[in-house]
């Protein structure tokens, strides 16, 4: 079995707060992904599941990853402050650059 690679990143938003992304990858598949940070928003249950939207996808399918993330933020998050939806995508882009 291939080894699991873990990466994490801290992304500072221009809106003043921070997004952290922790990701683990086996082969080219995302096994776990969690977005955390000091932002504000609702509903809390959905904000805590943002990372689940990209689990199972390939790190080589960048457009699909960003599209899935974008759809989740648009459809399931009512409001968010301190960071923007774009900040979550940028954190993902930066971590993909290091994989």
């Amino acid at each position: 079995m291939q080894a699991e690679i873990r990466r994490s990143i801290v992304y500072r938003s221009e809106r003043g707060k921070t997004v952290r992304l922790c990701i683990s990858v086996r082969g080219d598949r995302i096994m776990h992904a969690t977005f955390t940070g000091d932002f504000f928003g609702e509903p809390a249950e959905e904000l805590n599941k943002i990372g689940e939207s990209i689990v199972g996808l390939s790190i080589k399918e960048r457009d699909k990853l960003l599209s899935r993330l974008d759809a989740f933020l648009r459809e399931r998050v009512e409001w968010i402050e301190g960071v923007s939806p774009e900040d979550f995508k940028q954190a993902l882009v930066k971590i993909l650059e290091n994989l």
Partner: peptide, 8 residues
């Protein structure tokens, strides 16, 4: 503990 269920 919070949302980080995949955290080692």
């Amino acid at each position: 503990l919070g949302p980080c269920r995949g955290c080692p």
